[in-house]
């Protein structure tokens, strides 16, 4: 097992009774990487995280952390800590004792662990909150405490389960940046689970897209967004338009499924346009910075996103146009 991987899963399956949550996945997370596991609910991403944390054991396959096989090792003997979706702060401890808990278990002296807890709280910009109880904190503050508690004992990998799921929009955006800078400051490997493609695209160095217990694609945000491997990834990551092989053969000369980003599509006059690309607008929604249109091209539904300033036709037939490079031919259908 090469130690050049922070987390390595090989042929890992997890079966719950009749349900296969993970179906023989292989995954390597590099050291120091901010890695996202993206997928709809029930796709196996959380199970995957729990396998790394040790809360679940694989039905088959192996899990390794920095080259060390941890299959069958309980969570308390893994150098991995988790930030839980509901934060899981201990209600009977104050903030300082919550953060110092992992050190208390390691028999670190009281003065030392309180100093370490205070330092960790400072990293998440919560210094001076040590004496409060979790119940006295806001949601965002609780999450910072959970973060501080997870990093205080210097794990090798930090796992985050839907870290921003319970926060409101504004807080979520500032927290995204903060998580990124915290990860850089610590030089730690972060693995986080999310169902929000925007979150994964903006934070992660690399993304694994999960669907139905399998990994559909692993790649940089640009890879999965611009060059989706198949229809599922194209649709799930940024809801791309999917063009059928028949049309793609005419447009690009190859009989393959293709994805087309809504923002890459222009609206043009019908004259001289390919009849297959002529249709009518069926819906329009104003998104502030842009406008989203739904078009019906003879049965094929296509979405178009245009900047807000652009003058758009309101009725009558309309044609779409796009650069050849915008059309991404996918390797496989599913």
């Amino acid at each position: 097992m090469p130690a050049s991987t922070a987390v390595s899963l090989s042929k890992v399956s997890r079966v719950f009774g009749p349900v296969t949550a993970l179906d023989g996945i292989d995954l390597d997370v590099r050291p120091g990487e901010f890695f996202a596991m993206l997928g709809p609910s029930g796709s196996g991403k959380t199970t995957c995280l729990r396998l790394v944390a040790g809360f679940e054991q694989p039905s088959s396959g192996r899990v390794a952390i920095f080259g060390e096989d941890v299959t069958g090792v309980p969570p308390y003997r893994r150098a991995v800590n988790t930030v839980f979706q509901d934060y899981a702060l201990f209600p009977h401890f104050d903030v300082r004792d919550n953060v110092a808990y992992p050190l208390m278990l390691r028999k670190v002296s009281k003065a030392e662990r309180h100093a370490a807890a205070e330092a960790a709280l400072e990293m998440v910009r919560l210094s001076g909150y040590g004496a409060r109880r979790p119940a006295q904190l806001s949601g965002g503050q609780r999450q910072r405490v959970a973060l501080a508690r997870a990093i205080v004992a210097r794990p090798k990998v930090l796992l985050l389960d839907e870290p921003l799921g319970a926060l409101d929009l504004k807080l979520r955006e500032s927290m995204q940046e903060e998580l990124k800078s915290l990860q850089r400051a610590l030089g730690l490997t972060f693995v986080f689970v999310t169902h929000d493609q925007g979150e994964a695209l903006s934070m992660a160095d690399r993304i694994a897209v999960f669907s139905a217990g399998r990994i559909e694609q692993v790649g940089s945000p640009e890879d999965v967004y611009r060059r989706p491997a198949n229809r599922f990834v194209a649709d799930f990551v940024g809801s791309a338009n999917i063009l059928p092989p028949g049309l793609v053969a005419r447009l690009a000369g190859e009989r393959r499924w293709a994805s087309l980003r809504p923002e890459d599509v222009r609206l043009v006059a019908c004259e001289g346009a390919d009849p297959a690309l002529v249709g009518r607008i069926t819906a329009r929604s104003y998104l502030g910075a842009s406008t989203r249109l739904a078009l019906d091209l003879g049965g094929l539904s296509v979405h178009v996103v245009r900047p807000a300033g652009e003058l758009l036709p309101t009725e009558g037939p309309v044609a779409i146009a796009f650069e050849r490079e915008a059309l991404h031919l996918m390797e496989r259908e599913a």
């Binding site: 944390a53 040790g54 809360f55 308390y76 800590n81 509901d86």
Partner: peptide
Amino acid sequence: SLVEASMDLGAD
């Protein structure tokens, strides 16, 4: 998750 958090942080 309190129990899991405790185990995760190193408690048997």
